[in-house]
Amino acid sequence: MISDITFGQYYPSKSVLHKADPRMKLLLTFVTIIFLFVCKNFLSLAVMAFITVLAVAVSGVPLKTILKSIRPVLIILVFTAALNIFYTKGGEVYYEIWKIQITEKGVNTAIFTIIRIVILVVLSSLLTYTTTPTDLTTGLERLLSPLNVLHIKVHTLAMMMTLALRFIPTLVEEIERIMNAQKARGADLETGSLVQRAKALIPIFVPLMVSSFRRAYELAFAMTCRCYTGGEGRTRMKQMKLSVRDFVLLFICLTACAGVIVLNIFFEAVI
């Protein structure tokens, strides 16, 4: 049940994508997602699909694991497809019953949208599969560091994100422990009206809050003891360095993006 949370899941491997610089990965994911929405016809979309397949192939993450990340958005997929089929009108009419028309344009838009969402989900989950949460937040911190000029504390935000991610499994474990302890005292969490069930959560949440605050204090103590004073002047043991590998990835990605623009210009737009 709660232990099924897969958010921010990392799949350990030694692939090119795993070794690539997190900053580059973040940037490229961002760029490809933008170009996903620049695509105007199936040919340009095929280019994006191709580099997605390529990325999955070299990532070393099993296809089954990738497919698992699509499962949560299945309902959204079905929903958008249905909406597009029934509400987009234009082109040849394939089928007509009463007021509902299924048209060429509707079918095209539906297929287009599905592919687009699937690529979007696969690419972004590939990012978390190939990058550890720590690397991800560090990369984000570095990429956003220009915002420091605007007095936005990027380091603090990144640190908070790292800590939040780090404590998800700990909290899940804690919730399970407290739930068992209260169930052993006869707490009934499964039956009753909505109000009763909400009330039944009090014995879970109060101890959880108390222990979270205790943990936070302890962590703050431990960080202070290790001379943590915030981001200023802090150096890293693992320096992020762009290598040839990262520029190859950048080159492939930019070529694909250029291809999308060219195909958009020379072929008729479908959507």
């Binding site: 407290i178 302890a181 052993a184 009090i202 101890p207």
Partner: peptide
């Protein structure tokens, strides 16, 4: 059975609320 068999877990003080 929950009332017949009382279970007191490790570090039970964390269940107080």
């Amino acid at each position: 059975s929950r009332f017949k068999v009382g279970l007191c877990f490790q570090y039970p003080e964390y269940q107080l609320f």
